[in-house]
Design a protein around this nucleic acid. Structure first.
Length: 351
DNA sequence: CTGCTGTA
DNA sequence: TACAGCAGG
């Protein structure tokens, strides 16, 4: 989970048409995307898609079809994979692990009792993204000719950095953390089909892609990125998951506007000093100067290796060959058109 | 989440 | 053609 800044971005977020992204590169936090596929691509009883060996394949289905859809819309995704998480994230990762272990227990119980709604809920909560799944995703994307980047640390930070130095038009993520990391242009809800299921309910709502630009956001709020980061720290980030008790986005914003920075808020006795049991400066640095690198990887599209894709999806994971082949036709057509787009604009960079 | 099929 | 409902692996 990232920090919840939804209340603060309300006024600057704008719905966008996918057409606006035609011919543009978009960097994507791969873990974020894969995790969504793992939780969403399931049967009504909560079982994920699996191959004949019982191995989960939901992530491969999601990556494959979503990527082709993006390409058909002229959008070139750059998938950014996580490296080693920062030390400061270990408490949060531990917390998530514990939640999953509890969900696994409840899942077993629900199985025994045959409660289907519980079954679905807990199997989603128990979802784990393994290194093997990430590796399979990388391999599939490579064979599709899609650029991938291996981040030194957090994928979301690297994706934001790629955007900040102009190697992508936008960064796509569900979390707002990208903005804290300095992304200029954040796109949320980057999906093609507009319907999405509400959590734990069988209701579908229309979801449209939206854009939030960092500079207009800061201008509108009348604060600096440093101050936005302080707001996030007060609310709670992955590095201080519980934040300050009783402080949400609105209060955090008000306090930062009034006092400028967290230390001053403490001095003014607006929050108890002992409510901060973490190193503020260390967290600030993780957002302001994250461990990122200029990608050495080639960020241009390559030609897809069809045989390799069929080997992975059909031979190894029991995807339907005809479905895969028809999707590959769409991919090839999309690549031709996208290359045509770049020729028309006379640029070899796809902007 | 996304693709595909059946229905009007 | 458009869209609901189910299947995918």
């Amino acid at each position: 989970m990232g920090v919840d800044l939804s209340d603060l971005v309300e006024d600057v977020k704008a719905e966008i048409n996918l057409a606006e992204l035609r011919g543009k590169k978009v960097s994507i936090d791969a873990y974020n995307a894969i995790y969504q596929f793992l939780t969403a691509i399931r049967q009504p009883d909560g079982t994920p898609l699996i191959d004949s060996q019982g191995k989960i394949t939901s992530h491969l289905s999601g990556i494959f079809y979503r990527t082709i859809n993006l390409m058909e819309n002229g959008i070139i995704p750059i998938y950014v994979f996580d490296g080693k998480p920062p030390e400061l994230k270990s408490a949060e990762l531990q917390r998530r692990k514990k939640i999953k272990e509890e969900a696994e227990k409840k899942l077993e119980k629900a199985k025994e009792e045959g409660k289907t709604t519980e079954l679905k809920k807990y199997s989603q909560m128990a979802t784990r993204l393994t290194n093997e799944m990430a590796d399979e995703g990388k391999k599939l994307l490579k064979s599709m000719g899609i650029p991938i980047v291996e981040a030194p640390s957090e994928g979301e930070a690297e994706s934001a950095y790629i955007n900040a130095i102009g190697l992508s038009f936008a960064t796509a993520s569900q979390d707002y953390d990208s903005l804290l990391f300095g992304a200029k242009n954040l796109i949320r809800n980057l999906t093609i089909t507009g319907k999405r299921k509400l959590p734990n309910k069988d209701i579908y709502v229309e979801i449209k892609p939206e854009r939030i630009e960092l500079e207009p956001l800061l201008k509108k709020l009348g604060i600096t990125r440093e101050q936005l980061i302080d707001i996030a720290i007060l609310i709670g980030t992955d590095y201080d998951p519980s934040g300050i008790k009783g402080i949400g986005p609105k209060t955090a914003y008000r306090l930062i506007k009034k006092y400028g920075r967290i230390e001053k808020i403490i001095e003014a006795n607006e929050i108890p000093k002992n409510s901060i049991d973490f190193d503020i400066n260390q967290i600030r640095q993780l957002f302001l100067n994250p461990n990122v690198k200029k990608p050495e990887e080639n960020l241009d599209l390559q030609n897809p290796e069809e045989q390799e894709i069929i080997e992975i999806l059909v031979n190894q994971h029991n995807f339907n060959e005809e479905r895969v082949k028809s999707a590959l036709e769409r991919l090839n057509k999309a690549i031709k058109e996208t290359k045509g787009l770049s020729r028309q604009t006379g640029l070899d960079q796809w902007f």
